[in-house]
Nucleic acid binder design. Structure first.
Length: 426
RNA sequence: GGCGCGUUCGUCUAGUGGCCUAGGACACUGGAUUCUCAUUCCAGUAAUCAGGGGUUCGAAUCCCCUACGCGCUACCA
């Protein structure tokens, strides 16, 4: 039975690097019908951040990385660690000094072990090792003791954690041995680094999961992208669902080189997921995302127009707000359109609009204005840009006539009148 | 400094001795489609596989050395 766990310390919000660690542990457990648990490593009271535990749990839930059972909270198990630390004193492999309990490292010999990642055989010379603290003088365990005790009790196997722990392996192995417990397998995941190749941190603008969510990223895209940092699905397929990942994931294929987090590719992938969604589903997601949107019930008809134009849910707003709110005109925008007398042209546009049979049909509408452009001797593209600017105040919008349809005949006419006023006054 | 790990296009990677004059994806550039922007489709630029020595008929792939990077070296995790 495979039992894995994700064991973050609540020193801040859920880190994007933690997502991959949690994901791999989750995938392995689900693939083998095992269990995936959450353990909160809050034994350092100084670094504890209020709300961090909630953020971690919420982030995991949002991502769909559901853990089994209740989280194990280390700070609630103080006595347990104390008991085990004392047991090691009794066994003669630990001693008390300055109120702390220290582990006695053997001074001779070697520790060898094979990591599941890349099947690396790693050996450490014990002469290099020093005694280390198991239980701090405040009564809390250090990571080293807590890890050994908890993962033994939780029957974790394999232990999946970051590469930064590799150097501590001799401590852990010897502690397991001192207790007479079975040593679990370990998978030390390569670090996720920033563009400067150092461990990803706030310094790199690394954001928490919550911030990615606010930015309009989808959990499935984040999971998919993070999975690819160190693992390639069979066949080199890059867009893979969680279910597919569960089926095909294997620690054997995870490699041992640090990966640079590249948000550009994440954005591309997020766009892929958005385009893949049905209109109904995207509408629902947008409505959930845009909680404060002024016209939430009017989002659905706009969706097909923007689906191929947004990479993040948040991109919806700047692209479409002219549909929901009056545009503000800008002289510069009109200056970029190569039509001599814009006011006169708009006058003709208005005239033509009035003559069209309502309700306007996008197709006929377009035909009419192609004709008008021809009659006025201007390029079709410029004609459309003029109407676009008049109706939206922008040079970039979703398809013009479909947008106007959504806007409605009345509003479209009114906006063109206002654009004319603006052109006259400025 | 010591110890450990790592090193294939800008980035993520394929690659486990011959299929590699190194493949894919993102990004970038050009083109096609097009009312703008996107999408889509085509094409292209980009790695002397960190460097040097071996082993071998043959090495990105195995071994050694060097360089560089990162991690650890806390009564932090």
């Amino acid at each position: 039975m495979i039992k894995t766990r994700f064991a973050p310390s609540p020193t801040g919000t859920m880190h994007i690097g933690g997502v991959r660690t949690a994901l791999y542990a989750f995938l392995l457990a689900r693939k083998n019908q095992g269990t995936f648990n959450l353990r909160i490593e809050d034994t350092d009271r100084n670094r504890y951040v209020e709300g961090a535990v909630e953020d971690i749990i919420q982030s995991l839930r949002w991502l769909g990385l559901n853990f089994d059972g209740e989280p194990v909270i280390q700070s609630e198990r103080k006595e347990l660690y104390q008991k085990y630390a004392k047991e090691l004193i009794e066994k003669g492999v630990a001693y008390e000094q300055d109120g702390a309990i220290w582990f006695t490292m053997p001074k001779k010999g070697q520790v060898r072990f094979t990591d599941l990642i890349g099947k690396r055989e790693i050996s450490f010379d014990l002469a290099e090792q020093k005694d280390f603290v198991l239980l701090k003088s405040d009564g809390f365990p250090t990571y080293h003791l807590a890890h050994v005790v908890d993962d033994h009790l939780m029957e974790t196997n394999p232990v999946i954690r970051g590469d930064e722990w590799l150097s501590s392996i001799p401590k852990h192995i010897l502690t397991f041995q001192a207790f007479g417990w079975e040593i679990p397998n370990y998978a030390h995941l390569p670090l996720i680094v920033g563009t400067d190749r150092s461990k990803l941190s706030k310094r790199h603008g690394a954001k928490g999961v919550g911030e990615f969510r606010q930015d309009g990223f989808l959990p499935e895209a984040i999971l998919n992208y993070m999975a690819l940092l160190g693992w390639t699905p069979p066949g080199g397929k890059e867009i893979v669902s969680l279910d597919e990942m569960i089926r095909t994931f294997d620690l054997k294929n995870v490699h041992s080189t640090p990966a640079v987090f590249d948000i550009t590719k994440l954005e591309w992938m997020n766009g892929e997921y958005i385009r893949k969604m049905s209109d109904e589903r995207l509408s629902k997601r947008l409505r959930e995302f845009l909680v404060d949107h002024p016209a939430k019930d009017k989002i659905a008809p706009v969706v097909p127009l923007v689906k191929e134009r947004i990479k993040k849910l948040s991109d919806f707003v700047p692209l479409t707000d002219f549909l929901f709110e009056k545009p503000e005109y800008d002289r510069e925008v009109f200056n970029k359109i190569k039509i001599e007398d814009k006011k006169e042209a708009l006058d003709k546009v208005l005239y033509k609009m009035e003559s069209l049979q309502k309700p306007w049909k996008a197709e006929e509408f377009e035909k009419a204005f192609r004709k008008l452009a021809e009659d006025l001797g201007v390029k079709v593209g410029d004609m459309f840009q003029l109407i676009r600017a008049a109706v939206s105040g922008q040079l970039v919008t979703p398809p013009l006539f479909e947008s106007i349809k959504i806007l409605g005949e009345e509003k479209a006419v009114k906006r063109i009148e206002e654009a004319m006023k603006f052109l006259q006054s400025s």
